[in-house]
Write a protein that binds this DNA or RNA. Structure first.
Length: 282
DNA sequence: CTTTGGGCCTGGACGC
DNA sequence: TGCGTCCAGGCCCAAA
């Protein structure tokens, strides 16, 4: 799933659904995600009560009252489902990696068919220093990430702006979809070298990133394939893409002759598809 | 230091 | 129907 809006949607749901719940039973099935799941994980979270559920970048942090924090990453295909007491919980699938039964009768299931996700346990005090979180850049909504600071970071990079804003050490949360969307709203071609972005453009780009992420969060994220909300429903933002996966189609409010411009263009950068409007992002 | 390309996995869509 | 190929929202790592 997973760019920031999808993770944020899951985190908000989990904060509501499992905070305060006590873990009664745990089951770890497939032990091999991107990194192996610690064999002791299931046992070490058993009996604990869930505290705060928060997000850092695209990671979900589930605080426990035993001093530990469960770190969860959804990779490309991770889904977290929460079933209420009385719901029919499907039998454990071969792609279900973690199942938690709460004393309230609720059940949480983490599924990740492609196994690019992460499931790890750290002391809450030092989780920020973990190898997963320690090298991350600023949150896009951080107050102290000002346009000048953003510009300063871009100035150091010669690579294409699209790939640079997807670099989680520069700024977290932006993935392949929202990178294309934000560049469209900022009117910047995805192949422009980051260091050639003007102060005005950097400011517009930061605003566009924030606008797109905010709108996607409000819509409950985007579902292309695997992503699901914790209740199993799909997101709503996939219907609002301006350019992503819209090759040959008009961009919003387009007045061009499609025959002339060809509509939204697709190029490949770093092995990933980028979409842009050749007129507005010339 | 940055940048690039390959690799990790499975499943679905498509063409023959 | 079946098979091969390509593609997919993320991230790490080795090599240049």
């Amino acid at each position: 799933m997973p760019e920031l809006p999808e993770v944020e949607t899951v985190v908000r749901a989990l904060a509501h659904e499992i905070s305060g719940q006590t873990i009664e039973r745990t089951q770890v099935r497939s032990a091999k995600l991107r990194t192996p799941i610690s064999p002791a994980l299931a046992k070490r979270i058993r009996g604990a009560r869930i505290g705060n559920v928060t997000r850092r970048a695209k990671y979900i942090l589930v605080g426990l009252d035993n001093g530990l924090t469960l770190l969860l990453h959804l990779g490309m295909s991770g889904v977290v489902r929460v079933f209420a007491e009385g719901d029919t919980v499907p039998p454990l699938d071969r792609h279900d990696h973690l199942k938690i039964k709460f004393s309230s009768g609720k059940t949480l299931v983490f599924r990740d068919p492609r196994r690019f996700g992460i499931l790890a346990l750290y002391p809450s005090e030092t989780v920020a220093d973990s190898k997963e979180l320690s090298c991350l850049g600023p949150e896009p909504f951080a107050k102290d990430l000002t346009p000048p600071k953003f510009l300063q970071r871009l100035c150091l990079r010669r690579g294409a702006i699209k790939q640079v804003i997807m670099d989680q050490t520069l700024l977290v949360g932006v993935g392949n979809i929202y990178a294309s969307e934000a560049l469209f709203y900022a009117g910047i071609h995805p192949a422009r070298p980051a260091c050639e972005i003007s102060a005005q453009e950097a400011s517009a780009l930061l605003a566009a990133i924030r606008k797109v992420l905010r709108a996607a969060i409000a819509a409950g994220g985007s579902t292309l394939r695997n992503y699901r909300r914790t209740d199993g429903e799909i997101g709503g933002f996939q219907d609002g893409f301006a350019v992503y996966d819209r090759e040959g189609m008009p961009c919003p409010g387009c007045t061009c002759s499609l025959k002339k411009t060809g509509g939204v263009q697709k190029i490949v950068q770093g092995g990933r598809s980028s979409f842009y409007c050749p007129v507005r992002q010339g």
